[in-house]
């Protein structure tokens, strides 16, 4: 089990995380943060494998990733 968490205040809607996600479960949502950016949301947490590629590509350190302990 893994989980991706977008910290809304940091997200600038650039879309770079969306492109690198191998599971294609990230998309721009329909709600804005305080700066007016439409923040990224995860459409299917069940499918997240915790690979951290989205977080590593995010220029604004807006993503945290969690994974079950092995």
């Amino acid at each position: 089990m893994a989980k991706v968490k977008v910290i809304e205040k940091y997200c600038k809607s650039c879309g770079l995380c969306i492109e690198v996600c191998p599971k294609k479960i990230l998309t721009i949502g329909d709600k804005t943060n305080e700066k007016g950016y439409f923040t990224v949301i995860c459409t299917d947490q069940e499918k997240c494998i915790g690979c951290t590629l989205c977080a590593k590509m995010c220029p604004d350190v807006a993503i945290e990733v969690y994974k079950d302990k092995k």
Partner: peptide
Amino acid sequence: MEKVFARSKGLTDVPFSFCPGCTHG
């Protein structure tokens, strides 16, 4: 669950001033 990716202690919590998608960040 264990955090496998989180903001580094080397950064403050101030959001970067760069434009969206700028790789300075």
